[in-house]
Computed example of a mutant assay.
Amino acid sequence: MSISQFLRFVDIRTKFTSILPVLLGVFYTIYFFGTFDLLNTLLFFIAAVLLDFTTTSINVLVDYQTASSEDFKKEHNIIGRENISEKLVVAYIYIMFILYFILGLILVYRTNLVLLPIGIICSIIAITYTYGPIPISRMPLGELFSGPPLGFGIIFIAIFVNYRDSLILSLNFQNSTFVLQGDWLTILAIFFVSLPQV
């Protein structure tokens, strides 16, 4: 698959929707907290784009495999239109998702363990939005299930990985117990800032 094919395949024109919440979170952190972590921001930005690419790729593959007509496969779906191998598409999906997960683990290491379940929940929602026995997007309340976690979640993570002075939310283990601590006023403020994205 050439670079231009790949960019068409992941529908690069629509990626502003995954970039905007990251930018909103970063700008909010700079304005409100006066802090910015370039490495964490770059890692999260790449991870968010990779997850978006993965979701789009799964959607294109599912549409191709479940197409009701050969005409749709050959004329309207990029896999058939540009004769891209399904095995190659599946390989790209796995590679992008594994890279997303690795970047996520690096961010967990650089911040706090609480980021791990948040990242896993966001990725499950993103993948099941378009894939599975009953994709979220095909359910009557699909946007209600996906909008709040992703609209709030992406902005929250963008702020979380940049706010280094003190953690907005933290998860720590002490022997057989765990402690979940957070600043509920800050989290509430982030929720209200993220409402347009939600």
Rank of each mutant, 00 (worst) to 15 (best):
M1T: 00
S2E: 04
S2Q: 04
I3T: 05
S4T: 02
S4K: 14
L7G: 11
V10N: 10
D11T: 07
D11R: 13
I12F: 09
R13D: 08
F16Y: 10
T17S: 15
P21Y: 07
V22I: 11
V22Y: 07
L24C: 13
G25M: 09
V26D: 02
F27C: 01
T29Y: 00
I30M: 05
F33E: 02
G34E: 03
G34A: 03
F36E: 00
F36W: 03
F36T: 04
L39R: 08
N40K: 02
L42P: 07
L42G: 13
A47N: 12
A47E: 13
A48Q: 13
A48E: 11
V49R: 14
L51S: 09
F53D: 14
T54P: 08
T55I: 11
T56I: 14
I58M: 06
N59W: 02
Y64Q: 02
Y64G: 00
S69E: 11
S69G: 15
E70Y: 05
D71C: 12
D71S: 15
F72G: 02
K74Y: 14
E75D: 15
N77W: 01
I78P: 00
R81W: 01
N83T: 04
S85D: 05
E86Q: 12
V89F: 01
V89W: 01
A91H: 01
Y94S: 07
I95Y: 00
I95H: 02
M96E: 09
Y100C: 08
Y100D: 07
Y100I: 03
F101G: 01
L105A: 13
L105P: 09
R110F: 05
R110N: 07
T111M: 12
V114E: 02
L115A: 15
L116C: 00
G119V: 04
I120M: 10
I120R: 10
I121H: 10
C122H: 11
C122S: 11
S123T: 08
I124F: 08
I124V: 13
I127M: 01
I127G: 01
T130E: 04
I134E: 05
I134H: 08
P135I: 04
P135V: 04
G142F: 14
E143I: 06
F145L: 15
G147K: 10
G147R: 12
P148S: 06
P149M: 11
F156K: 11
I157K: 10
V161C: 08
V161D: 04
N162R: 05
N162L: 14
Y163C: 12
R164C: 13
R164N: 14
S166V: 12
S166D: 15
I168S: 03
S170Y: 10
L171E: 05
L171M: 07
F173C: 08
F173W: 11
F178T: 03
L180H: 05
Q181W: 13
D183G: 10
T186W: 07
I187C: 09
I187T: 03
I187G: 06
L188P: 05
A189T: 00
F192A: 03
V193Y: 08
V193L: 13
S194Y: 07
P196Y: 15
